[in-house]
Amino acid sequence: MTSRRNRSLLTFVGAAILWYFAAITPSTATAGSPDPARITVEGFMFNPMALTVKAGSTVIWTNMDDDPHTVISDTGLFRSGAMDTNDSFSFKFDKPGTYRFICSIHPRMVGTIVVQ
């Protein structure tokens, strides 16, 4: 029981640290940028949940949870397979618009990419 409680506490603390750094770090990538925009999947949430990028940018989702997750566009534009711990999925956003996505395994996990 103590191990489970410690794991939950570490997950919470890790999510809080990621949230803090996401809040102070710009989350916008520019077209042609050598560094793609990144979203972490941890604590059963996408971080950041909303991201704005320029057309032509690539977004990379990386699963940091011990449980598998997916990234699926609500329109079917992109779809990852099940990502295990440390697995990643990327997609290049060529056209401006708003793109919503979920984890099909945990549908309460949602996020949005705004492409300018």
Rank of each mutant, 00 (worst) to 15 (best):
M1Q: 12
M1W: 10
M1F: 13
T2K: 15
R4Y: 13
R4Q: 10
N6C: 06
N6I: 09
S8R: 13
S8Q: 14
L9I: 05
F12L: 12
F12Y: 02
F12I: 08
F12H: 11
A15Q: 10
A16P: 05
A16I: 05
F21E: 06
A22V: 13
A22F: 11
I24A: 07
I24Q: 03
T25K: 08
T25M: 11
T28F: 03
T30C: 09
T30N: 05
G32R: 09
G32W: 06
S33C: 00
P34M: 01
D35R: 14
P36S: 05
I39L: 06
T40A: 12
T40D: 02
E42P: 02
F44W: 03
F44D: 11
M45N: 07
F46R: 06
F46S: 02
N47G: 03
P48H: 07
M49T: 12
L51E: 03
L51H: 00
T52C: 03
K54S: 14
G56E: 12
G56F: 15
T58F: 07
V59R: 05
I60R: 06
I60G: 07
I60P: 06
W61V: 04
N63D: 09
M64W: 03
D66S: 03
P68Y: 02
V71M: 09
V71N: 05
I72F: 03
D74W: 02
D74E: 14
T75I: 00
G76Y: 07
L77I: 09
L77Y: 01
L77E: 14
F78T: 00
S80H: 09
S80W: 03
D84R: 01
T85V: 03
T85R: 10
S88R: 08
F89N: 08
F89G: 08
K92L: 10
F93E: 08
D94T: 15
D94N: 13
Y99I: 03
F101I: 07
C103V: 04
C103Y: 06
S104T: 02
S104P: 04
S104M: 10
P107E: 02
M109Y: 09
V110I: 05
T112W: 10
I113C: 03
V114H: 10
V115T: 08
V115W: 07
Q116L: 11
